[in-house]
Amino acid sequence: MAPIPLLILNPLDPERVARIAAGGFAPQLAVGPAARAAAIAALPQTRAVLTNGATGFTAAEMAALPRLEIICAIGVGHENIDVAAARARGITVTHGPGTNAASVADHAMALLLGLLRGIPQADAAVKRGEWMGARGPRPSVSGKRLGILGLGEIGLLIAQRAEAGFAMPIAYHNRRPREGCAYPWMASAAELAAWADVLMIAAPGGAATRHLVDAAALEALGPAGFLVNIGRGSVVDQPALIQALREGRIAGAALDVVDGEPVVPAEMLDLPNLIITPHIAGRSPEAVLATATLVVANLRAHFAGQPVLTPVA
């Protein structure tokens, strides 16, 4: 049987493209707005689309593909896919929970350690020849209170690492308390921030979480508090964060995600108390290939007439 064409809208490394091709699908890459629009117009017979949460897929784009059957989000996020429009059309939507959770949790801890201990700043100072200037005291990590905003699979892995490795007390905020969870639940992001020494964002994007960490939450975190975000940039009110960092109303922040990425606001680039990594938390070699393997498994199940493995709930 000939490979089934798969329209891919987000950047993919050659290894993942090869794994998808080996799974029986013909990758057709259309990355960027112009290529995307052209491909959708030129390929109306498309039955399968691969995207991610940031890139998304709109109702209008679905309408332009009358034979579309399945949309796969590579990775856990699906916030910019119009799931309601897909359901109305009977289009299956899948995502990739768990494929990169351990890698994201590892990176979260790396950001936390680097932020509190000032590792990037110390490295830069030493390389400028400022050995003594880089030896100022920095906060310890052990025993600090860690507030996790979004205690899903990734949040739990972060909590395990922080509690077992650094004796950090844990509390969390979800929309509702997690059943069977022994960690204290806080009723709001601001309440969690007021309790925490470090506020860790592991929440998904989308309308329900947009600007959940606002100026009030940052004020509650306070001038000795730190923010780490490995969730989605939209969860944080970015102008409020920039102002809080510039005015020293929080001690520092470490971000793997930025609202509007890959564009980083110019106001962020000269903040000495801010660390940014380019959305790489889930990009370990093991996790990268696992995301592609799950996409292939979902596609093969769908086209074999079987239930997909990880539908969007």
Rank of each mutant, 00 (worst) to 15 (best):
P177W: 02
T55L: 00
R145D: 12
N100C: 08
L294A: 02
L192G: 10
V31P: 01
R47H: 03
L269F: 01
A171N: 09
R36L: 12
G305N: 05
P285F: 04
A207M: 08
V296W: 01
G231I: 06
H107E: 02
A220D: 12
P262G: 11
P278R: 02
G147P: 10
N273H: 14
Q160K: 14
G143K: 11
M132P: 02
R87G: 07
P44G: 13
R300C: 02
G143T: 11
A297E: 15
G147F: 12
A39R: 02
R47G: 02
D197W: 09
K144C: 10
R176V: 10
I70K: 08
S234C: 10
I276K: 11
A187K: 08
A193K: 12
T291C: 14
G53S: 03
H302C: 03
P184D: 08
N52L: 08
I242D: 01
R47K: 15
L149G: 07
P66T: 10
T293D: 14
K144Q: 15
G147Q: 07
C181Q: 12
G114P: 10
L7R: 04
Q45I: 00
V213E: 09
H78A: 11
R87E: 10
A18N: 03
A208S: 11
R89I: 02
A26S: 11
V235D: 09
R67S: 11
A124I: 04
A244Y: 13
A196H: 06
P311G: 09
A253D: 15
G90L: 07
A313G: 04
G96F: 11
R138G: 05
R135A: 12
W185R: 06
L50A: 06
G118P: 05
L112Y: 00
L112M: 14
W185A: 09
H95N: 15
E267W: 07
P33M: 13
T46N: 07
A41H: 08
Y183K: 13
A37P: 00
D197C: 03
A171V: 09
I4W: 00
H95P: 02
V264I: 15
E163M: 15
D82C: 13
V141L: 15
P285M: 08
V236D: 07
V93H: 08
A39N: 03
L151H: 07
G165D: 03
W195Y: 12
V83F: 09
E79Y: 01
G260W: 03
G77E: 00
